[in-house]
Design a protein around this nucleic acid. Structure first.
Length: 675
DNA sequence: TATAGCTTAAACACCC
DNA sequence: CGGGTGTTTAAGCTAT
C-alpha cells in the first residue's frame, strides 16, 4: 500500500505548483529508471553468463555473482519494503488498517479520508531510519554471505584449477551457473512477490468502493490505463518489461498456476504480517515451495479472486483454484496482465528508489546519519514484528513536501500521497486510532503544517489535526490573530486540498467547533464578527500529556536535529499544543510579527518553529505567551486589546519571556465578555 | 466499563 | 425567501 501511495505521488506530479512537486515527478523518471534498469540488467547479465559460462574467469564470476547478490539483495529490499507496507487485511477494517498507513487506501476510502493516526514527520523519520537500518543490515548480511560463499567457491575453484584440467574447472563453473540460475529464480520470485504485492494492493475489489484510491495510489495516470490496455502495452511497456530481464511467459505461468519450479528459499527473512491476510510474500512463496497451503492463496482473499480486475467470487479455495486455472491460465491475457503488473511493480520500484534517495538527502540535510539505526532503542531485528514498522516505513517518506503534485483541483478527488504523519498510536498502541494525534503531544500543528504544507495543500488527505487545532492555527497565523468565519473557511481550503470538497460537512464542523470550544472567542468587529483564540482556554482544553507515548518522545529526540528537538520537545512539554510557539511572529516578533510572511498562501509553511528558535535561543518558550495576540482589528472591544498593547509587536524575543500567567488571566475576562 | 474528546449531522435562530 | 452565521443537541467512535 504504502508503496502505491508513494508512487502515485509521483505520477501526479505535473501539476505541482511548487517546483518541488514537479521536480520529484521528473526526477523520478531518471533516478528510478536507473534503479529499474539495474534490476533488469542483472537478469540479462545472468543470462549472458549462462551462455558463455565456460569462458568465465573466476574474477568475472566473482564480479558477476556479486552483482547478482546485489541484485537479489535489492530485490529483497524492495520486497521487504512492499511486504512490510502491505497492510494485512486492508479490506476488512478500513478505518482500522488505515492507522499505520497514512495514505493507505483504507484511509482514503470510505467514510472519510481520515488520516487517523498519523505520525508526525519526525516520527516517520525515525521509523524510516529504523526500517532502513534494518534493511541495510539484512542486505549487508546477505551480501556478506554471498561473498563468503563466492570466496569459498573461488578458492575451491582455483585449487581445482591447479590440480585439474579445464574440464574440472568447467564443472565448477557449471555449478556456479546453477547457483546463478538459482539466484535468478530467486530474483524472479522476488519480482513475482512484488508483483503480487502489487496485485494485492491494486486489486480492484478494494478500490471498488472509493475508486479513486487504488489505481491512483499507484500511479494515478498510468495504471488505470495500464490495466485497461492490458493487452497492448505500448512501447514503453515492452521496454520496461524487457528491462526487467524476466521471462514474461514464465512469470505469468508461475503467477497463475501453482506449478512452480523448485524454489530456493532465499536466505532472507520475510516479514509475516500480523494481520490475517497472508502476506503475499510469504504465503506465496511458502505455499509454492512445499506446503502448498490449501487454506490460502495470495490471489484469493475475502471470498474473491484478487487477480487484477477480476473480483470473481469464489466460495472456497477449491473453487478459486478452479477459477484461477480456467480464467487466469497462462494465456495472452494473463500474460499481458502480468506484464502490467510488472509495470506497476517497476513503477513502485522506481518510486522507492527515488524516495529512498530523497530520504537520504533529507536525512543528510537534517544531520541524521542515514543508515544509522540508532534512533531506536531496539534496532534491527528482522523479526516478524517489524512488519508494523515496515508499513510505516515504506509509505514513509515523511516529507512529502516535495512530492506533491496532485490533482489538487478541487474537483479531482484524490491523491493519496503519503501523508506526512502517521498516527502516533501506531507506534505503540497500534490500534486503529482515529485521533488526530498531532495536536496532542508531539508535533505542534504549526510545525507539522510547516513541514508538510505543500503536501496538505495538494494532497487530498485529511490533515491529522482536530478542527479546533486547525482553526486555532488559522487564526494564529494571521498577524492580528483574528479571522472571520469566512476567512477561516478560506484558510482551510487554501491550506488543505482535503477541505476543498465536502464543504458542507467541514464547514459545519468548523462552526460547530467555534461555538463549542471556549477557546474560540467571537469578537464583534466593525465589519462583523471575527474569531480569536483564547490560548489559555485552549491550553486548558487538554492537559499536556507527554505520558502518552514515551516512545514518541524518544523518537522525536532521536529523530530530530538537536535544535528542532529542543524546540519541539520543549513545546511538547509546554503543553501539547504550542500555539505561537511555532509561530514566527511570536518568536521573532521583531521581524516576523508584522510580516508574517507566509501565513497567507504561497510561501507555504505557516509558522516554522523549529528553525527559528531551534538552536539559537530557546527562549524559554513559556507557553503562556501566546495568548495575548488577539487583537481585534477594529477593536471596538475594549479591554482585550488595550490590555496588551505589546501583543502585536509581539514580545520581542527576549522580552517575551514575560510572565505569561498574568496575561492569561487578563484575557479571560474581556474575551469572554465579548462573546 | 465509564468517561472524555472529536467528528458529523441536523435543527433552529438570527441577520442581511 | 435564501444564504451565511451561530448555537445546540445528539449520536457514533476512539482513546484513556
Amino acid at each position: 500500500m504504502m508503496v502505491e501511495s508513494a508512487s502515485e505521488t509521483i505520477r501526479s506530479a505535473p501539476s505541482g505548483q511548487n517546483g518541488v512537486g514537479s521536480l520529484s515527478g521528473q526526477a523520478d523518471g531518471g533516478g528510478s529508471g536507473a534503479a529499474g534498469t539495474a534490476s533488469g540488467g542483472a537478469g540479462r547479465d545472468a543470462a549472458g553468463v549462462a551462455d558463455s559460462n565456460g569462458e568465465m574467469s573466476p574474477a568475472e564470476l566473482l564480479h558477476f555473482q556479486q552483482q547478482q547478490a546485489l541484485q537479489v539483495a535489492r530485490q529483497f529490499l524492495l520486497q521487504q519494503a512492499s511486504g512490510l507496507s502491505s497492510p494485512g487485511n486492508n479490506e476488512s477494517k478500513q478505518s482500522a488498517s488505515a492507522v499505520q498507513v497514512p495514505v493507505s487506501v483504507a484511509m482514503m476510502s470510505q467514510q472519510m479520508l481520515t488520516p487517523q493516526q498519523i505520525l508526525s514527520p519526525p516520527q516517520l523519520q525515525a521509523l524510516l531510519q529504523q526500517q532502513q537500518a534494518l534493511m541495510l543490515q539484512q542486505l549487508q548480511e546477505y551480501y556478506k554471505k554471498q561473498q563468503e560463499q563466492l570466496h569459498l567457491q573461488l578458492l575451491t575453484q582455483q585449487q581445482a584449477g591447479k590440480q585439474q584440467p579445464k574440464e574440472a574447472l568447467g564443472n565448477k563453473q557449471l555449478a556456479f551457473q546453477q547457483q546463478l540460475l538459482q539466484m535468478q529464480q530467486l530474483q524472479q520470485q522476488h519480482l513475482l512477490n512484488l508483483q503480487r504485492q502489487g496485485l494485492v494492493s491494486l486489486q480492484p475489489s478494494q478500490a471498488s468502493g472509493p475508486l479513486q484510491t487504488l489505481p491512483q495510489a499507484v500511479c494515478p495516470t498510468d495504471l488505470p490505463q495500464l490495466w485497461k490496455g492490458e493487452g497492448a502495452p505500448g512501447q514503453p511497456a515492452e521496454d520496461s518489461v524487457r528491462q526487467e530481464g524476466l521471462d514474461l511467459a514464465g512469470t505469468a505461468a508461475t503467477a497463475t498456476s501453482f506449478a512452480s519450479p523448485p524454489k530456493v528459499s532465499p536466505p532472507l527473512s520475510h516479514h509475516p504480517l500480523p494481520n490475517g491476510q497472508p502476506t503475499v510474500l510469504t504465503s506465496r512463496r511458502d505455499s509454492s515451495s512445499h506446503e502448498e497451503t490449501p487454506s490460502s492463496h495470495p490471489l484469493y482473499g475475502h471470498g474473491e479472486c484478487k487477480w487484477p480486475g477480476c473480483e470473481t467470487l469464489c466460495e472456497d479455495l477449491g473453487q478459486f483454484i478452479k477459477h484461477l486455472n480456467t480464467e487466469h491460465a497462462l494465456d495472452d491475457r494473463s500474460t499481458a496482465q502480468c506484464r502490467v503488473q510488472m509495470q506497476v511493480v517497476q513503477q513502485l520500484e522506481i518510486q522507492l528508489a527515488k524516495e529512498s534517495e530523497r530520504l537520504q538527502a533529507m536525512m543528510a540535510h537534517l544531520h541524521m546519519r542515514p543508515s544509522e539505526p540508532k534512533p531506536f532503542s531496539q534496532p534491527l531485528n528482522p523479526v516478524p514484528g517489524s512488519s508494523s514498522f515496515s508499513k510505516v516505513t515504506v509509505s514513509a517518506d515523511p516529507f512529502p513536501d516535495g512530492l506533491v503534485h496532485p490533482p489538487t483541483s478541487a474537483a479531482a478527488p484524490v491523491t493519496p500521497l503519503r501523508p506526512p504523519g502517521l498516527g502516533s498510536a501506531s507506534l505503540h498502541g497500534g490500534g486503529p486510532a482515529r485521533r488526530r494525534s498531532s495536536d496532542k503531544f508531539c508535533s505542534p500543528i504549526s510545525s507539522e503544517l510547516a513541514q508538510n504544507h505543500e503536501f496538505y495543500k495538494n494532497a487530498d488527505v485529511r490533515p491529522p489535526f482536530t478542527y479546533a487545532s486547525l482553526i486555532r492555527q488559522a487564526i494564529l497565523e494571521t498577524p492580528d490573530r483574528q479571522l472571520t468565519l469566512n476567512e477561516i473557511y478560506n484558510w482551510f481550503t487554501r491550506m488543505f486540498a482535503y477541505f476543498r470538497r465536502n464543504t458542507a460537512t467541514w464547514k459545519n464542523a468548523v462552526r460547530h467547533n467555534l461555538s463549542l470550544h471556549k477557546c474560540f472567542v467571537r469578537v464583534e468587529n466593525v465589519k462583523g464578527a471575527v474569531w480569536t483564540v483564547d490560548e489559555r482556554e485552549y491550553q486548558k482544553r487538554r492537559p499536556p500529556k507527554m505520558t502518552g507515548s514515551p516512545t514518541l518522545v524518544k523518537n522525536m529526540i532521536s529523530g530530530l536535529s538537536y535544535g528542532a528537538l529542543n524546540a519541539s520537545y520543549q513545546a511538547a512539554l509546554a503543553e501539547s499544543s504550542f500555539p505561537l510557539l511555532s509561530n514566527p511572529s511570536m518568536l521573532n516578533p521583531g521581524s516576523a510579527s508584522n510580516l508574517l510572511p507566509l501565513s497567507q498562501d504561497d510561501t507555504g509553511a505557516p509558522g516554522e518553529p523549529l528553525p527559528s528558535n531551534g538552536s539559537s535561543s530557546p527562549p524559554r518558550l513559556s507557553p503562556p505567551q501566546y495568548s495575548h495576540q488577539v487583537q481585534v482589528k477594529e477593536e471596538p472591544t475594549e479591554a482585550e486589546e488595550d490590555r496588551r498593547p505589546g501583543a502585536p509587536l509581539g514580545p520581542p524575543n527576549a522580552s517575551i519571556v514575560g510572565p505569561p500567567e498574568e496575561r492569561d488571566l487578563e484575557e479571560e475576562l474581556p474575551g469572554e465578555e465579548l462573546s
